[in-house]
Computed example of a mutant assay.
Amino acid sequence: MNQTILPQGELLSCNEIQLHYKRQLFETMPHLNDVKEVEKYLRDMIDLKRIDLVEFFWVLYLTNSNRLIAMAEIGVGSSTQVGVSVKTIFQKALLVNAIGIIVAHNHPSGNLQASDADISITKKISQAAKFLDMVLIDHIIITSEGFMSFAKEGLL
């Protein structure tokens, strides 16, 4: 801790923050170059018994070459919505030094259509990513029966 004495004799302190990060070995990181690979990875990682119950929101954090660094569950909601913190998404992205992100959520109803709220949060996440020199690669809606890609539908 660095300390400085101010003119009136007050003590000012400055705490330093250190972060240590070691990524996985490159060859062990899944390579997610295609939306079908992303869907398969999600289905392998999430609890499929719960996706028809309530909405979840997940983020996949990627390197510049689309290697998966990490996956995080950002929110758990109700049967019709899930709250999403853009701040939380990018706190984690910065911590793992991500370049790209893929966001995903489920629709318990089975409807694969993007809602106005889905489109709105996607735009907000995309704008925040650009500001931080990152890229939102895709937003996936997943159900028990299938999936929808915002990128493939031209919604990004």
Results as ranks from 00 to 15, higher is better:
73 E>F: 12
95 L>S: 11
12 L>F: 05
66 N>M: 10
89 I>F: 07
6 L>S: 00
32 L>D: 03
15 N>Q: 09
145 E>Y: 07
134 M>H: 08
55 E>D: 09
68 L>G: 01
63 T>A: 05
71 M>Y: 02
73 E>Y: 08
13 S>H: 09
73 E>T: 15
114 A>L: 14
109 S>K: 06
69 I>H: 00
45 M>H: 10
144 S>Q: 12
51 I>T: 05
148 M>T: 15
138 D>V: 08
22 K>A: 08
103 V>Q: 05
46 I>F: 06
64 N>Q: 15
134 M>A: 08
84 V>I: 15
139 H>N: 12
137 I>F: 04
143 T>H: 14
40 K>L: 07
3 Q>A: 05
87 K>R: 12
22 K>M: 05
127 Q>W: 02
144 S>H: 07
143 T>I: 04
15 N>V: 07
75 G>P: 02
62 L>V: 03
146 G>M: 09
5 I>V: 10
39 E>W: 06
117 A>L: 09
31 H>G: 04
52 D>F: 08
97 N>M: 04
76 V>I: 15
82 V>G: 06
138 D>Q: 08
87 K>N: 13
145 E>V: 10
135 V>T: 05
129 A>S: 14
67 R>K: 12
65 S>R: 12
141 I>F: 02
78 S>H: 06
75 G>Y: 02
117 A>C: 01
112 L>N: 06
153 E>C: 11
131 F>H: 12
4 T>A: 12
57 F>R: 00
154 G>K: 14
99 I>E: 03
32 L>K: 09
60 L>T: 00
37 E>H: 01
122 T>F: 07
150 F>G: 11
6 L>E: 12
148 M>W: 08
142 I>M: 11
84 V>G: 09
106 N>Y: 03
37 E>P: 02
53 L>F: 13
92 K>S: 03
110 G>F: 10
147 F>H: 07
36 K>S: 09
43 R>P: 01
47 D>S: 13
64 N>H: 09
62 L>M: 05
77 G>I: 01
136 L>S: 01
108 P>E: 08
142 I>Y: 02
144 S>G: 15
39 E>C: 13
25 L>I: 10
56 F>R: 03
129 A>Q: 04
88 T>S: 08
134 M>T: 08
9 G>F: 07
91 Q>C: 05
40 K>S: 14
123 K>E: 15
114 A>R: 03
39 E>M: 13
36 K>A: 14
22 K>T: 09
76 V>P: 03
57 F>K: 00
126 S>D: 14
60 L>P: 00
15 N>R: 13
95 L>D: 11
67 R>H: 10
59 V>E: 03
30 P>T: 04
32 L>F: 06
22 K>V: 00
25 L>P: 06
144 S>D: 12
139 H>I: 02
99 I>V: 02
133 D>Y: 12
41 Y>D: 02
40 K>A: 14
89 I>D: 07
13 S>R: 02
109 S>Y: 07
124 K>Q: 12
41 Y>A: 03
66 N>E: 07
110 G>W: 05
43 R>K: 14
59 V>T: 04
90 F>T: 06
38 V>H: 00
59 V>K: 02
40 K>T: 13
33 N>Y: 03
78 S>F: 03
53 L>E: 10
109 S>M: 04
132 L>W: 07
